[in-house]
Amino acid sequence: MLAFNNTFTYWPTFSFIGIPGLETAHTWISVPFFLLYLVAIVGNVLLFILVKTEQNLHEPQFYFLAILALTDLGLSLSTMPSVLAIFWFNIHHIGLDACLTQMFFIHTLSSVESGVLVAMAFDRLVAICAPLNYTRILTHYMVACLSGAAFIRGATLLIPLPFFLRTFPFCGTNVLSHSYCYYPDMLNLACGDVTFSSVYGLVCVLCTFAVDVVFILASYTKILSTIMKLGIRDRNWRSLHTCVCHLCTVLVFYLPLISLAVLHRYTQETSPILYTTMSNAYLLMTPLLNPVVYSLKSRQIQAALRKRLWVQRVVAGE
């Protein structure tokens, strides 16, 4: 946003606080952060490659998993530069355009991930409640439509946010509460009447995350109801086991998200270190844990990993 006075125009800059009170230990703190980012990036890339190359994983649920891995990869790459720049180079400042760009990608990719989790819930719903029609309903075209809808919804709803922020002057110290640019955080620094922008941000949350949570809960209510109506011998335990992976992913994504939203909207004078901890958990732990969850819980992913490792050993032996 251009800030004006009688004589000149300037572009505001924003400051990241890093981890308050531990500035002297930033070099040491950077080591686990870098390793976690590296594991998250490698894990999601490996997960995407497995789904792409292994014929046994060419199923709708794993297509959604590959899209989820790409989204998590985007989230990691969106936040990693600013986080590591603080720890490694003591760079705490960012320009308005760069901040708005980072903010847009973070919020859009978060919305897309939420939409993909809904698509995965729908996949499990059809697999358990209508198994005979699974291949007819979950076609490649349907997978593409659901994935495209998640992306279009996120981009369409969230693209106005940077333009809203550009309409406000930033007349304070412009110190952000996180190690990256976050819309509610930036809006708190804006001068002027931010009521409409704040309400629009709340509407975005309700139209994405709130609606998605309701759909996921409704899906699993139907799934559990269907399973309990079946006899023990007729219950599809294999399909139910895949639900565990999805539920773990849902919890990993939504719990930090909800906690961070509550901190921003309903708490006052919260410790800065608490903000930093929750924000890093929100955007770092989700890309990190999703590949781990599916590697530990999904038998098909485990089999693909074993096959890939066996092939590599054979090639190395030759």
Rank of each mutant, 00 (worst) to 15 (best):
F33D: 02
T53C: 10
L96G: 02
A303D: 15
F89P: 00
H264G: 08
C243A: 14
A130C: 10
P287F: 01
F196N: 07
L305G: 02
Y134A: 07
F215R: 06
P287K: 01
P160D: 07
L38E: 05
L57F: 06
L96E: 08
A261N: 08
L125V: 03
R166D: 08
L96A: 08
I137N: 05
F33H: 08
L284W: 04
V45P: 01
C129R: 07
R299I: 08
L296W: 03
I17Y: 03
I258S: 10
C204Q: 08
C171L: 15
L50K: 02
C243V: 14
L132E: 15
L73W: 12
K297Y: 09
E59S: 10
V194L: 01
E318N: 05
T27K: 04
I17L: 12
Y134D: 04
F105W: 15
L35R: 02
H93T: 11
L36F: 10
L84R: 01
H246T: 14
W28K: 04
Y220M: 12
I159H: 12
G21S: 09
S219H: 05
D72L: 02
W310V: 06
A149P: 00
K222F: 15
A40K: 01
C191W: 06
I29E: 07
Y200W: 12
F170Q: 07
M1I: 02
T167P: 01
R306H: 12
Y180W: 03
H246D: 11
G154P: 01
S295T: 14
L70H: 00
L165H: 05
Y294C: 13
L165M: 13
H140K: 13
S179E: 04
T267G: 13
M103H: 04
V252F: 06
N56Q: 10
L2E: 11
V126P: 02
L247T: 14
L109V: 11
L47S: 14
G231C: 05
C204W: 00
Y63P: 01
G192H: 09
T7L: 11
L132D: 15
L46K: 06
V252R: 03
L161R: 00
L158S: 02
M120N: 06
Y134R: 13
Y134L: 03
S82C: 02
L189M: 00
R153W: 10
Y200Q: 05
H107L: 05
A190C: 10
L138S: 03
L251N: 06
P160R: 09
G154W: 00
R308F: 09
L217P: 02
I152S: 09
I19C: 07
L84C: 02
Q55D: 08
L125I: 00
F4D: 05
S177R: 14
C99F: 00
V118G: 03
A66M: 09
A130I: 00
F163A: 15
M278R: 02
T9F: 07
S239W: 03
K297V: 12
Q268C: 06
A144W: 09
Y275T: 03
S15R: 13
L240Y: 03
C145Y: 08
H264F: 15
S111G: 15
I86D: 03
L100M: 06
F105N: 09
F168S: 10
Q102L: 01
V194I: 13
F196K: 05
S30G: 14
I258W: 08
L251T: 12
H107I: 02
G231S: 14
M120L: 13
C145V: 15
T79M: 11
M80S: 04
P291E: 06
Y141M: 11
I227A: 14
I216K: 05
F151I: 09
L260I: 12
